[in-house]
Design a protein around this nucleic acid. Sequence first.
DNA 1: TTGCATTTTTCGGCGTGCCTAAAATATACT
DNA 2: AGTATATTTTAGGCACGCCGAAAAATGCAA
Lengths: 229, 229
Amino acid sequence: MDDNFLSQTAHSEAIEDFLKAVYLLQQEHARVQTSMLAEALSITPPSTTEMAKKLARANLITHELYKGVRLTPTGERVAIEIVRNHRLIELFLVQALGFGWDEVHREAERLEHVISEQLAERIAQYLGNPHFDPHGDPIPSPEGDVEERALTPLSALALHTPGIVARLRDQAPDMLRYLGEKGLVVGAHVEVIAIDPFEGPLTVQVDGQAQVIGSNVAHYVLVSHSKGM
Amino acid sequence: MDDNFLSQTAHSEAIEDFLKAVYLLQQEHARVQTSMLAEALSITPPSTTEMAKKLARANLITHELYKGVRLTPTGERVAIEIVRNHRLIELFLVQALGFGWDEVHREAERLEHVISEQLAERIAQYLGNPHFDPHGDPIPSPEGDVEERALTPLSALALHTPGIVARLRDQAPDMLRYLGEKGLVVGAHVEVIAIDPFEGPLTVQVDGQAQVIGSNVAHYVLVSHSKGM
DNA sequence: TTGCATTTTTCGGCGTGCCTAAAATATACT
DNA sequence: AGTATATTTTAGGCACGCCGAAAAATGCAA
């Protein structure tokens, strides 16, 4: 006996974080498992199961016991709104307040839960209704549509094929800062000029400058082939 | 056995709200009573007492049983930081994002708890380190200094003495909107041209326009005598 | 296919922040 | 001062989000 029979209930921060984590993990994993969620949310597996059952009851996710979890359309709507808020806030902090693009994640992590739909809208307007955030992640439309692009990890880019950095996967500030020092920021022109075998380092021309990076790091740099942005 | 032995502990939203409420009530009442706090926080008196005891244990307030509550210097530091955040956010929403000054309170109420000190600083810079928010409330400095002004309620202003609206006490959007319709906004030039006896309505010249308002409403409009603002 | 390691779930518990009902204290009145 | 009224505190309870320990299910390997 409770809430939420049509639309727009207010959800707790814990619930919003959970749904967001499922959404993000779902992009790479068909079934989102308890252990992954526990890891992503920094809570224990028992807590994860508990929340999963609760959200399944509320029809925000489906939970197949011992198998994993998926968002329902309703759950996805909620998750996407949070993701939209997050990415709008990141971009806003960078553009309007001069933050570094490597220092906005934690701030957005808190703000995403408390801004009103109205404020999100005003921020979007201020920014000119952008489609991507400073990391190259797509910003969902107010209606929840997400513009996905086919991108190639730098580690998988063919030799001597020029490309443009379109997205950086990891959120950790240190990695972002490291990549930034190498010139690997969204919009940079890149071309792989040498690849060592056995997952060795690659040599990459970054805006004219040759750089050597590990292949594991290169996996986080997503490149578009022609113009893309 | 717990937290907080030197500075900057993170406090829950409930605690921050409580301390803020004490701070605001303290300006008008020497001893802040349980019932006032319960009213201000929309919680019951027992919950208020409970929180009071907890915060007294943490040395954020002093609590004299059955008498009331006061902030300690530590508690005041926390409260002032929240108040500063609140007022900076209100002003920022108005100035940077075009919100109406009567619609920013609720938004700030949520944001005040989650912005980092760093973000507050950037917002302050963006705004040119302002001393007052859109309602004329003083914005504490980062160090916690509050610029207090001696102001007169419009209801107590002497006949035919020109003044300038410097501050509007109430936060309720409907009242702010009502006052706005009468031209009673911060910065407006006012002069009382008639007062009915027995707490009756007053007739006020507002930027040249004659307006009639109730004395209870006039109590919320604070006026500075000469230039102030 | 049986047994073992891993993953997931169940179970019992805990702190926070809130509540209602009842008891204690303060205050106001005559 | 003595009693009625209003305020405050105590007592007992509840939902939420989390935990650790133990049980159950899964899946991998011999």
